[in-house]
Design a protein around this nucleic acid. Structure first.
Lengths: 365, 365
DNA sequence: TAGTCCGTCTTGAACGATCAAATGCACGAA
DNA sequence: TTCGTGCATTTGATCGTTCAAGACGGACTA
């Protein structure tokens, strides 16, 4: 490799001091235009790139965002969603001058230990959490340590929504959309295959369905009859579908909390419309209509919120200016906000963003 | 956070010099036992963790392994395989004291630029490449720059196998196993749905099938008749399956180069045995028998080979000892080698490992 | 004329670790 | 007694960057 070009090399080449080179790169406004150009030329000629480690040592900022890579679930559904999210995160982060550092952890306790470990060694500037749930200890820990972070997933069960920034997809809106679609097709007995109540995500998805049926004039009693809760997984979906189908008064269409359940429903063999959730490869493969989460946008919003949080905390000041320029860059390119229900919150308050899913129509409905 | 404990704090606490603390952690053998214990106690009491940035600055080693996260394919199959691989990589790397840094790139040119970028700023110690293919420019670039790396995938088309370390799964053995299984079931006209020749992976998988049929006494002419090449994707698989089924002399079973093709074949509706490749969630969901790659092992082997390569190059010497201990740690826990066809190569030569896939039997065959 | 301020650039120090070399000490041989 | 030897530990320098403070000349003010 090119023998390591340092800032001193650039300084010598451009006949200025180290600090001037640094200023050109980090605080261009304090440097005379002519000098600035000369330095930039030198930077280009020598192929200079600031050494992260050295910079980090001085500024305390690593330009690293840590994210946990989760083991693919048995049915790989979560894995897929997460994979696409991670890809988007890496891309959005790169645009803002950050990189994504991976870690694993088997449970929450191990994850907290890993937080500590990482903070002590690699010093990531922020964390991104996924799969938040009721009573998640991770958010409290990070809040207490005052480490910037965002979650992909609402702070289920936490009193106010604004203790930390989060991004999520409106699952209820997704199932509502699916249900509405089936009602418009003329169906009235639209069943729901979901998970046992208690999970934020699952309950949210059920709500969207129930709410839409209610709006469509279906009675609460009937709604209860159309609802079936079971564990996630294809075979469970199949069994649950049978429970709703093999009755005197069978459902005529199904909305499901996951593609796994929907696939199971398809395998039940009746030829009724079925709609899944997450638009996984499996859905695509078998032609299953499914609710799709805008994962690249979720990732972009996560980075955007993180950058805001990072600007707020107390570290370097000079360096911070360069960043806010980067933020500007990202914002320019973002058609993101337009299609999102970005719930604006007052400045200086952790913001949150709730994005709308979309319905991908295929053969199954 | 705990106010940053530095090596000087530990030294003060244990009444020794900074260097002694450093030695306890990196070259324990030069320190008197009594001192060593006292220092370790101090480390524990203060919760000291060596700062990566500072260490990197001195040693030139970042303890970072860079890996590209690929966008999920249309059918998400590659995405899934890669996701699991990445998880394994992160875990194995962590055990050896390394972390995984992600990057994205749209094409090879962009990827080379990213290599350069990363090497200039974050200075990863090594790269992990996936999806290698004929004439891959990335391996040449990295070889030329003398950057350590491993690939998940053979150096297709490169003359000798030993220019760089690689890990791969024996695809031919996988399709051979699948074919053998169908032959044993009494089938003779076992068809193959694969990709057009030209891709290393695809040709390899076809070979395993053809070879097994030949061994089973099927004539070359007949084999050619049973072979169908098409683009990857469920609908293509369905069409191809029809081509092999709707003839005077239809196939009675199918081996496929991917789960997508296999799913297509299933949708063709004939009730014949079908075997896919990669054991993706889709396969699990629909009960498709499939050839499964041992991805966690692949990842573990990648890390193992990388560590070997990293020991060889010319950087610190003291630090190196600590690492080789780590390697030892990993090896202990590794049932990995046992079940793999680890092709041993002479010391100091890049090694490679070819792992055996397994057949996961489900309803489809 | 002297003093102040501003814009531009430079100098020395510091981040936290490791390396290379030096030091102190105990021991045994000359 | 003196000196070399080897072990355990310490000291000073260094990695590449940014921060804080200082230097310098010119313009503007008093």
């Amino acid at each position: 490799m090119a023998d390591k070009v340092t800032i001193a090399d650039v300084a010598r080449y451009a006949s200025v001091s180290r600090q001037t080179v640094s200023n050109v790169l980090n605080s261009p406004e304090v440097v005379r235009e002519e000098t600035r150009l000369r330095v930039l030329e030198a930077v280009k000629a020598l192929g200079y790139r600031a050494n992260q480690a050295a910079r980090q040592m001085r500024t305390g900022r690593s330009q690293l965002i840590a994210a946990r890579i989760e083991p693919a679930q048995d049915d790989g559904i979560n894995g897929f969603v997460f994979d696409r999210f991670l890809h988007g995160l890496t891309e959005s982060a790169a645009r803002a001058g950050y990189r994504v550092l991976l870690y694993t952890a088997d449970d929450h306790e191990a994850e907290l230990a890993t937080f500590d470990d990482l903070l002590g060694s690699y010093e990531p500037d922020a964390f991104v959490l996924t799969s938040t749930h009721y009573g998640d200890p991770r958010t409290d820990w990070l809040l207490e340590q005052r480490i910037p972070f965002v979650t992909f997933g609402r702070p289920w069960g936490l009193s106010p929504d604004r203790r930390f920034p989060w991004v999520d997809v409106d699952g209820a809106a997704g199932t509502a959309m699916a249900t509405r679609y089936l009602l418009d097709l003329g169906h009235r007995r639209v069943g729901f295959l979901g998970w046992p109540s208690g999970s934020g995500v699952g309950d949210d998805r059920r709500d969207g369905w129930a709410r839409t049926l209610t709006a469509g004039g279906v009675s609460p009693a009937e709604i209860a009859e159309l609802d079936c809760a079971t564990q996630d997984g294809v075979p469970y979906g199949e069994a649950a579908a049978h429970a709703l189908l093999d009755t005197d008064h069978p459902v005529t269409a199904l909305v499901c909390a996951s593609d796994s359940l929907a696939l199971g429903a398809l395998q039940a063999g009746r030829d009724i419309p079925v709609i899944g959730f997450d638009d996984t490869p499996s859905a695509r493969a078998v032609g299953l209509t499914s609710v799709s989460q805008p994962l690249p946008e979720v990732a972009a919003q996560c980075v955007s919120l993180l950058l805001r949080a990072l600007e707020g905390d107390g570290a370097g000041t000079r360096a911070r200016q360069a960043e806010s320029q980067d933020v500007g860059g990202r914002t320019d390119e973002g058609d993101v906000e337009r299609e999102s229900t970005a719930t604006a919150t007052p400045e200086a308050q952790p913001a949150h963003v709730l994005l709308q899913p979309s319905l991908v129509r295929r053969r199954s409905a």
